[in-house]
């Protein structure tokens, strides 16, 4: 039983990282219909921002987290404006390939600038482990969980209860109609990228703090897993993406707990295939009727 709860905590802390990334993936996809494969690399940028500001500017954890969100938000806006905006009316696959290109550009650009060495993240918060009847939980795990929850709720608030959020929802429903209603499409898409990338930046700092190891290719696998989480939860649903992230984290943990550590990545990708075959809309997704 003790082991079960320990694994549950392991799964939730891993899942909250996927959830943060999946949220960013999801809102960008929901609004611009673009699979932003560079999302995982923006998360890497966030981790490096945290690394440099904490080491050289002596930022505290909160300052590093917030500035990382701002900087990554800006990076997202720039990426969108430079790489994706010119292709908005091009075939979908052109934008997809561009996204892969941006991802390679960020990974290799960072490898060139900061070398591909693994770095240890400065430990601004001293690790403390609480022992709850044999179940260990660290303060950093708690911080990750709480930050994820706050950011998810914040995002839900923005999307559902603000004017910007309403604009985003309408753009997601119909580009042309929204623009006829006087919504500035470019502006709205920029804000979407800013929000999504800011979440990735936060995840980057949190992951750096949690695992104490960052490198330019760190965004690859989590990025793909977050994509699976977003599909699992249902593209277009905020709670869905968050739940999807937690489920993927728990699934990976369960597979390892059962002793199949070699198959944990395989398990995640099998979920992707099954979901796409059986429940293409995801757990919380809206059924979409394609009108001809």
């Amino acid at each position: 039983m003790q082991t079960f709860f320990q694994q549950l905590i392991n799964g939730l802390s891993l899942g909250s990282i996927y959830a943060l990334l999946a949220l960013g993936y999801m809102i960008v996809y929901g609004i611009s219909k673009l699979l932003n494969f560079a999302h995982g690399d923006v998360y890497m940028l966030g981790a490096y921002w945290g690394y440099y500001t904490i080491n050289y500017l002596h930022f505290g954890f909160i300052t590093a987290l917030i500035t990382a969100m701002i900087v990554c938000g800006l990076a997202g806006v720039i990426i969108e404006a430079v790489a994706y905006r010119p292709l908005r009316n091009a075939p979908r696959v052109a934008a997809l390939i561009t996204a892969i290109g941006v991802s390679f550009f960020l990974e290799n650009g960072m490898s060139y600038l900061v070398t591909s060495d693994t770095r240890n993240f400065p430990q601004v918060i001293k690790q403390k482990t609480f022992d709850l009847g044999g179940v260990m939980i660290s303060n950093i795990q708690l911080i990750i969980l709480v930050t994820t929850l706050i950011l998810t709720l914040g995002l839900m608030y923005i999307i559902n209860y603000t004017k910007t959020g309403r604009a985003m929802r309408s753009v997601s429903t119909d580009y042309d109609a929204a623009s006829l209603m006087g919504i500035n499409i470019n502006h709205t898409v920029s804000i979407t990228f800013a929000l999504g990338s800011a979440l990735a930046g936060a995840a980057g700092v949190l992951i750096g703090l949690y695992y104490n190891s960052i490198d330019p290719l760190m965004g690859m696998t989590p990025g793909i897993k977050a994509f699976v989480a977003a599909v699992l939860g249902g593209i277009g649903s905020i709670p869905g993406a968050a739940v999807g992230g937690f489920l993927i984290g728990l699934l990976e943990t369960a597979v390892q707990a059962m002793g199949f550590s070699a198959f944990r990545d395989a398990a995640v990708y099998i979920v992707l295939i099954v979901i796409l075959l059986v429940l293409p809309g995801g757990l919380f997704g809206k059924k979409q009727v394609e009108k001809v």
């Binding site: 695992y211 290719l217 943990t253 390892q256 707990a257 550590s261 070699a262």
Partner: peptide
């Protein structure tokens, strides 16, 4: 007692280590 595996690039070993 047990042989478990990971892959280069993995970052989270908590659950395997718990096992």
């Amino acid at each position: 007692v047990t042989t478990q595996y990971f892959q280069s690039g993995d970052k989270d070993f908590n659950s395997t280590l718990t096992t």
